[in-house]
Design a protein around this nucleic acid. Sequence first.
DNA 1: GTAACATATAGACAAACTTAAATATGTTTA
DNA 2: TAAACATATTTAAGTTTGTCTATATGTTAC
Lengths: 112, 112
Amino acid sequence: MTAMQLCKLFKALSDPTRFGIMQLLIGKEMCVCEIIEAFDKSQPVISHHLKVLKSADLLSEAREGKWIMYSIRPQIAAEAAKVLQTFAGTAIVRVDPRKGCIESRCSDAKRQ
Amino acid sequence: MTAMQLCKLFKALSDPTRFGIMQLLIGKEMCVCEIIEAFDKSQPVISHHLKVLKSADLLSEAREGKWIMYSIRPQIAAEAAKVLQTFAGTAIVRVDPRKGCIESRCSDAKRQ
DNA sequence: GTAACATATAGACAAACTTAAATATGTTTA
DNA sequence: TAAACATATTTAAGTTTGTCTATATGTTAC
């Protein structure tokens, strides 16, 4: 999973309605009409948000006759979780900032 | 952690520069000037992105004389990771969509 | 095949976001 | 205290995003 894909995934999760859809779909699949009712938003709005979540690979869809069922793609969510865990995971290495900056990085940096 | 806070956090991670800053800070703290050099972006832009990450509680800052050191807040990243893991975690319960929709949800729904 | 249902798409518009340029703030050194 | 350094803030583009309205597509029932 590239950084670009992860950014897209996080952007998909950054909208309250989309985040709510993900929470709603934990452990189950639902058709669009059920999701619409859970949010009291217009059908096109929910449809749009589902598209964003799907294009971030967070959701998969499966048509069942007249209905389209949406469900979470667990592997993708798990991968993103691992990345966040990486951010949390390692102990912080403390460097003397003065030494670090003065000697090699800040003072002779070319700014734009 | 509320849904609103989580959305803010995910939005913070949804920008490539900010995501890159998080990756850069894995396991270490750095001063702003070092971060600027890693990205070849202007100082005000990096300063702005740091502010966004900080206001999402993903980063903490500590002044060291002339410099300000930024580092990841591990508990927050871990909490967000757990939420994503929740999305991934549960097996999907399959319901017959026709039954579910026809009987109680879709056909008599009040649309807007 | 036509009507009804479930969902998606297109276009328009306001709000939010990213970046750039200029300037301000706070710290250290001389 | 003045100059230099490190970082933040403000203002103003240009771009993206979320929602609305209207319409289109695909499926089933009659």
